[in-house]
Amino acid sequence: MKTEKVRIKNGAIELPEKVRLSMNLKDDETVLLELNEDGTVTLRKNDTIANLKGIIKKGETPEIQVNGFYNLQFETSSNGQGKQ
Rank of each mutant, 00 (worst) to 15 (best):
L52S: 08
M23P: 08
I8S: 06
T61A: 11
L32K: 05
K5I: 01
S77V: 00
E34I: 14
I8C: 01
T48R: 15
G11M: 00
K58L: 12
L33A: 05
A12W: 08
R44Y: 15
R20L: 06
K58A: 07
Q65P: 04
P16Y: 04
I55T: 12
E37N: 05
P16H: 03
A12K: 15
G68Q: 07
S77I: 02
K26R: 07
A50H: 11
L43Q: 14
P16C: 00
E14P: 00
K2E: 15
S22F: 08
D27P: 08
D27F: 08
S22N: 02
F74I: 04
L25A: 03
I13R: 02
L32Y: 11
M1W: 05
K83V: 14
E34G: 03
T42I: 01
N10P: 00
N67S: 12
V31N: 01
P16F: 03
V19D: 00
T76N: 09
G54M: 05
L52P: 02
Q84I: 13
G82Y: 06
Q81C: 12
Q84P: 08
R7Q: 10
M23W: 01
D27A: 04
G82H: 07
G82L: 11
V19Q: 00
G82A: 15
V66R: 12
S77T: 05
Q81V: 07
K26S: 02
F74C: 12
E4T: 13
I49D: 09
G82N: 13
S78W: 12
T76K: 11
G82P: 05
I55L: 07
N71C: 07
D38V: 00
L72P: 08
I56K: 00
G82E: 08
T61M: 01
K45S: 11
K53S: 15
K18H: 11
I13V: 09
E34H: 10
V6K: 03
D28Q: 11
K18I: 13
D28M: 10
G82M: 12
K58N: 09
Y70D: 10
D27S: 00
L25W: 02
G68P: 06
D28N: 15
T3A: 12
I8R: 07
K18S: 13
E34C: 10
N36M: 06
T48D: 09
K83M: 14
R20A: 03
L15A: 02
E75Y: 06
A12N: 09
E34T: 13
N46L: 01
K83L: 15
I64Q: 05
N24W: 15
N67V: 02
L15V: 04
L25S: 06
T61V: 08
I55Y: 15
E17G: 15
M1N: 11
S22G: 10
M23Y: 04
G59H: 01
Y70R: 11
D27H: 03
L35T: 15
R7N: 14
N24C: 10
P62N: 04
S77Q: 11
Q84V: 14
D47F: 15
V19E: 01
V66G: 07
T42W: 09
R7A: 10
E29V: 03
G59E: 01
R7E: 06
K83T: 10
K2G: 14
S77Y: 03
N67C: 04
